[in-house]
Write a protein that binds this DNA or RNA. Structure first.
Lengths: 172, 172
DNA sequence: GCTGACATGTAAGCAGTTACATGATTAT
DNA sequence: ATAATCATGTAACTGCTTACATGTCAGC
């Protein structure tokens, strides 16, 4: 899965500008994918050059003009190629877990701070995903709900484990 | 957290070669960090140049020579600087969840295949982490146990959610 | 008057990955 | 014989991030 695949897939739903795509990335994918403007705009250029998407300039009142991109038939084929590929292994990069591994070298106070901060972060994430569950309640597909539910259950489990550990640490 | 921080931290435990470091990466960090030889060797060179580590060539019998690196006092200071930094946000990149999001565009059969494969992968991961729990049982620190337990609980929760979803899908 | 949302883009750089190259020894 | 383990390295590439640059309009 590359940035271009996700951009292409996002345009399947409806024509969008780069700005719109960024909003979708933040709203929908943020917990398992990152995409910055610095990736989106050059990718849109490239995809247009390859005729996988087509551009239409939309003049707006009270707002700047928009470059609205639509996926072409060739683009749909390209996206299907992505769907045919093997599913890539999940990649997790966690500075928090790395610190846990190295926490022999820090004071207990700091270790506890790190864990408390992580619990707060994870709780915030759960809350955000639960809000999405409500907001999207209608018009969400079964498999999109899977994304949310997997995320929530994973975070909830992590929070529980961390809270147990914290208690143990404080009792020592 | 960059590759160099992890390499430096790994050398705190004992002097090691690039090859040894790779083994530790695979054994210990594999589920929340990736590090290839192509990263490790150039990093060791650079760290040596900066005098954060020192090299000793160890001649072995029946095996190729080793470049064994030890962390220096300057290196320890550099690693402590890393520990002082803010903990970076966790980054997850999941092709599986992306496919879930886009699975409106695929047949149910394929969706089920993807989910079944993901459940198998996650079960394999849980098994591996549980084996480590046993193998390391002694000599593991509290916080290193946190790494394992967070990983296991997170995977177990994901497997449960996915199995529920699979059942629902098959009943539809 | 200033912050924030809306909107697009580029250029330099980075932190790696991938693929290649080499070669001894050990186990099957 | 041949695959796996041990061992080190480079060079080209990639896919993105960061920082910069520019500008309008709405709301407080």
């Amino acid at each position: 899965m590359k940035g271009r695949d996700v951009v292409l897939g996002t345009l399947l739903k409806r024509p969008m500008s780069g700005y719109d795509i960024k909003l979708v990335f933040e709203d929908v994918f943020s917990y398992f994918f990152d995409g910055s403007f610095g990736m989106i705009y050059p990718t849109l250029r490239q995809l247009e050059k390859e005729e996988l998407i087509s551009k239409e300039v939309v003049i707006q009142e009270g707002k700047p003009n928009k470059n609205v991109y639509s996926i072409t038939e060739k683009g749909r084929e390209e996206f299907n190629k992505y769907l045919e590929e093997d599913v890539q292994k999940e990649v997790l990069c966690s500075d928090f877990l790395m610190r846990m591994y190295f926490s022999d070298y820090v004071e207990k106070k700091k270790l506890i701070e790190w864990i408390e901060a992580e619990i707060m972060e994870k709780k915030k994430s759960v809350k955000q995903l639960q809000e999405k569950q409500l907001v999207w309640a209608k018009g969400i597909t079964m498999s999109q709900k899977i994304c949310l539910d997997v995320g929530i259950s994973s975070y909830v489990a992590q929070i529980q484990t961390l809270e147990e550990k914290l208690l143990q640490l404080k009792q020592e």
